[in-house]
């Protein structure tokens, strides 16, 4: 991403990339503990009960997020083959899908839920889990906005697109969290807690 011109040997450049990847994955490991803690909270407080939620809406936003990961991957693969146009297109689609997800959760599910944040453990757990996740989706969309802009200006190439790789992995990480959160909130247990 930088246009620094000092000469790095191939070995040093490879080591630098590995170091960056290690740093990114350590960040995911660390952040994962937050979501782990939230899952523990959900099961500790609600046990076998499940919040009253709109199943159809839950299914839609989940599908949207999963599909967005597909387009995110396409964007990353595109730039890895120097296909800037495809990269831009797929990144835009990913961002739009991310925004749709946020509208679906924060815009709709939060309004439609028959409970508010202060309505018992059901409310506390639901809004904290979806709120933390939505915050991560939002930051992901912002991150994508930056790489979109830089990508459109030709800053990335097949050899040099670390920011894209990082953004894409972040996006997949956030999707992975939802793959655990969705069943925990919508599928496991029985309604009426």
């Amino acid at each position: 991403m930088s246009t620094h011109t000092a000469v790095l040997t191939a070995k040093e450049a490879a080591r630098k990339m590995t170091t960056r990847r290690l740093g990114l994955w350590l960040f995911f490991l660390s952040d994962g503990f937050v979501f782990g803690g939230l899952l523990v909270t959900r099961f500790y407080l609600l046990g076998q009960a499940r919040p009253h939620l709109e199943q159809f809406l839950g299914l839609i936003v989940t599908a949207v997020l999963l599909v967005s990961s597909f387009f995110m991957n396409r964007a990353e693969v595109s730039i890895a083959h120097n296909d800037r146009k495809s990269f831009v297109r797929n990144t835009v689609i990913t961002m739009l899908l991310g925004i749709v997800f946020l509208v679906g959760v924060v815009g709709f599910e939060w309004q439609l839920a028959p409970f508010g944040p202060a309505d018992g453990t059901e409310g506390a757990v639901f809004y904290m889990m979806t709120g933390m996740h939505a915050f991560h989706v939002l930051t992901g969309v912002i991150f994508l906005g930056f790489i979109l802009r830089n990508g459109m200006r030709g800053h990335y190439s097949a050899e040099n697109h670390w920011a894209v790789e990082a953004a894409a992995n972040y996006w997949h990480f956030v999707d992975l969290v939802w793959i655990f959160f969705y069943p925990a909130l919508y599928l496991i247990g029985t309604v009426g807690g």
Binding site: T41, L45, A118, A124, Y127, M128
Partner: peptide, 29 residues
């Protein structure tokens, strides 16, 4: 370290928004 952050965050939100994680009257523990 993320867990002390999470636990403190939960108390902060219980104070600010009434999210009853730890309030037995709301079903919390």
């Amino acid at each position: 370290t993320q867990l002390i952050g999470l636990s403190f965050q939960m108390v902060m939100f219980e104070r600010l928004l009434g999210m009853g994680f730890f309030d037995p009257a709301s079903g919390g523990n």
